[in-house]
Nucleic acid binder design. Sequence first.
DNA 1: GTCTATACTCGGATAGAC
DNA 2: GTCTATCCGAGTATAGAC
Lengths: 204, 204
Amino acid sequence: MTRRSYPKGLAKREEILATALKVIAERGFGGATLRELAEASNLSITGLVHHFGTKEQLLTEVLRRRDEVDADAYEMDRLPETAAAMIERLATLVDRNAAVPGLVTLYSNLSADAAAPEHPSHEYFRERYEQSQDLGRDSLSHLQELGELPAGVDPGDLAQLMIAAVDGLQLLWQYDQSIDMTRGLRALGALLALANEGGRSADE
Amino acid sequence: MTRRSYPKGLAKREEILATALKVIAERGFGGATLRELAEASNLSITGLVHHFGTKEQLLTEVLRRRDEVDADAYEMDRLPETAAAMIERLATLVDRNAAVPGLVTLYSNLSADAAAPEHPSHEYFRERYEQSQDLGRDSLSHLQELGELPAGVDPGDLAQLMIAAVDGLQLLWQYDQSIDMTRGLRALGALLALANEGGRSADE
DNA sequence: GTCTATACTCGGATAGAC
DNA sequence: GTCTATCCGAGTATAGAC
């Protein structure tokens, strides 16, 4: 894409993104208007727009930033060696998100809005989901080869289920923050473990 | 609440809701502005507002209508007798939704927006999720008693996972309508079956 | 009790000066 | 690269006609 053009504006962009993230984290998604964000950056609205084009593009960049940080935490490049380990990685991710409710709300709202194909952030989410599905499928296939997962289930289907569960739990959690999102995930983990025992005895 | 007051306006309300549903189903969620909906009902904007108060309340009523229809399809009052049957009920629901993309989009967007406690539709969704969780927990407990579900998993946790999965799959599906949402659910169904075999042999 | 007209707010986007 | 000024679209609030 035509991003990151001149090195001068880049520093300013990063500065704006950092304050935007802080504002959203502190004051919640409600404060994520161009006016509030501009004010927090000591800039006019047009100043912001000059750097990011639209509000949505700005917010997308905020999420993209979080993705980069999360990618390290999840250890994307290492396939998990056990089903339990995979679930725990997801649980860690989800727990980290729970510490920043404003970002969770931003994510839920933007991902719902951007479902419309014309939406400026549509491509971002489409790619993101595609990558997540690929990663999940690869991880689960790997586990299947290791005998950590029953052969009867399709890794692609299960990957979709997991991604959907993570997104859905974050939505549910916004309505009742007493919910521990990791419990739902670990319940799935328990099922995976039991299913593997069951499948194994059927194999032999 | 102070709804359904006079029997005269009730008919008009129903008429408006029906056209709103048709507009959203045909033209998608993008057309769900007060202007479009008013036009479709041959009414002024204030005419609509008079009947429903705010745009969100109108849209909430549209969803509430669908809930009522779905409640019959799901057979809420009958607890499922097998895990597979429970999964199939969810699959049926999700398939019916897939036939009306506009409503799915409406649901995703409104449920994300209404996560803010001040939002007029917040209570609707909060109650809806609460009821869904209760129903899911009861169903799963029942299955556990029947020996259709391993004793090791918590029905409440699993219910949350299922609800989250349904919502999440609907979001995912909006980004790639070639996805068959029922596959994710059936993958979970397969896990439940395998886990029960595994758990059973451990019991004895 | 039902509806309309008008006017207001707020959020986002755009044009053009400096 | 940043601002001032302006516009537009969407939702809401009020007064009042029938």
